[in-house]
Write a protein that binds this DNA or RNA. Sequence first.
DNA 1: ATAAAAATCCAAAGCGCTTTGGAAAAAACA
DNA 2: TGTTTTTTCCAAAGCGCTTTGGATTTTTAT
Lengths: 341, 341
Amino acid sequence: MNLKQLAKHLNLSPTTVSRALNGYPEVGAETRRRVEEAARKVGYRPNPHAMRLATGRSHAIGHVLPSDRILMIDPHFSDFIAGAGDVYSASGFDVMLHVGGSEAEETVYKRYAQSGAVDGVVVMGPRLNDFRIALLTELELPFIVHGRVGDLEEGYAWLDIDNRGAFRQATKLLTDLGHRRIGLINGNEAMTFATHRRQGYEIALKACGLNADPAIMTSDAMTEENGYLQTKRLLLSDNKPSALLFSSMLFVSGAMRAAHELGLQIGTDVSLIAHDDGLPFLNAEGLVPSLTTVRSSIRAAGSRVAELLIEIINNPEAAQPHELWTVDLIVRGSTGPVPRT
Amino acid sequence: MNLKQLAKHLNLSPTTVSRALNGYPEVGAETRRRVEEAARKVGYRPNPHAMRLATGRSHAIGHVLPSDRILMIDPHFSDFIAGAGDVYSASGFDVMLHVGGSEAEETVYKRYAQSGAVDGVVVMGPRLNDFRIALLTELELPFIVHGRVGDLEEGYAWLDIDNRGAFRQATKLLTDLGHRRIGLINGNEAMTFATHRRQGYEIALKACGLNADPAIMTSDAMTEENGYLQTKRLLLSDNKPSALLFSSMLFVSGAMRAAHELGLQIGTDVSLIAHDDGLPFLNAEGLVPSLTTVRSSIRAAGSRVAELLIEIINNPEAAQPHELWTVDLIVRGSTGPVPRT
DNA sequence: ATAAAAATCCAAAGCGCTTTGGAAAAAACA
DNA sequence: TGTTTTTTCCAAAGCGCTTTGGATTTTTAT
């Protein structure tokens, strides 16, 4: 059943029915009631394509997976989108996902902008210097960044967690425990989040008069295997670190494997802290010993990012939101004093 | 630039231009060439909303995440969609993702069907008895199932891997090695794939005159922690199994942790085999010892499912495709003969 | 040469909605 | 009471594309 039919059925014009349903003022209260009731009764749903064509708005949000991630669609992404999805469907937005393929990422955004296929996009996994900000600004396609682009804070909307603060805090916990040699197993530092984490780590070290040692710092794809390999390498090196900091729980799986293999007791022989995005399949608390983490739910971030983007779309004139979430340090069993040699 | 403008620019009617671009025969060869060239030069792209409204086809595929998975958007999903995404974008299809929210899953499908928001959907994570098959059939919304619905093989399109065969083979490898007590750490057996795996396991046991023992069989969410807990429980039980079979690599992470904790050597004290979906962040070969697996790339399945669905959409009269993929057994270091007690 | 068939192109009518610019009726004002 | 304002509704014109049903021209058949 379409608008015209519904209108005829009500002895009204399509105009009036459309207005009644969309909350326009120029329609009588009683008439509106009648229309709404009838619409509900017959289960009328406006054809989205027609609506989109007429209004130019799509009621859809685009998520374009960065091409440098398509070979490694990491599980962090799916949890983020799970959070966002809740909000989208509650607000009647569809989500349009673009992943991989031969089409250049840039082209996808251009197509989105030109065709009005989406009302806005969320930029995931921003790099230190990300071409997407300039591109989307020029295209005038509303967007929000999950994370930040290097240290750029103005000129675009973003929601980020305080990665620097988190790793500063985590590192400080370790130095407070007496650790002086702390390894960092980081994600790819072309990504802002990873660089921020390294910076937080360095700041805390400096606060103790320590210098970061590149020999015990790595920057790699966040996989179990890399966690294993790097941990093993570091723990077997001369002048090995007494504590390790990880950018992802995925690393930790491998790290524990390495520690066990080397016969090292976690929390006594070597201390471990990881950033925990709250991935549901990898529970830091369930590890033995339970893992000390800096924790921030990536899923909650997804929800909030979606909310903010919808606000931006509905009110483009408002100030661009900037949200920096603090990260909780949760001290558990994987951290302890430096072992005496 | 829209159709009308392009047409005027070419001194042609919109009709002809549209036909030239869409490959209709009633347009001269030279004219078509001119049109195509001009379209390319000015970067003309038909407005998708207008196209959709006019044709009733959306050129979009829907992926609706089952509501029983939204709390646990597992990483298997993101790899599947990564594979599918390649194909979609190569074929000019958009993907519409629906995850969670308050709207009932059924309503989403109805909305899709009634509004033509998508041309087809892929059904992920089918259960033994899945309401979606009847629903989508009735809605006449083209669909394909990744997996199967129990033992139902007709009446819908599907692509599945031979889970039964895989676990039969894996179990047989273990029995051939002399194992007589083999534990199964399975995913949720409400899902077809998990039930099939259990059946394969049971068939292989029966072939040796063994009966499956529920005491060493579990069916749970595929998380690291469950892998750990169940492995530990089984390996600490009286009459403990000498080998374990896992439905996911995620389990294995936890399982290795448990084995190490108990001081058991993998491949000698206890043998391990897992199903490996080829998740990029969890490499079976990189484990120590490297893991014997039954392997089938979930990403490749995603690609193929997408291809098949597009074929179905383009040619609804053709026979429904059924593809059963064999699964490779890759023997590595985590399996060995039964330890003598 | 003429008639029939084929090849090209176009005008116009949708697709189902929104929105502009009135018109008619009701209410408020003088 | 007559006039102005407000309220309530509608007709019609898009949005940008596809597609039907010709019209015109060219080719082929007779």
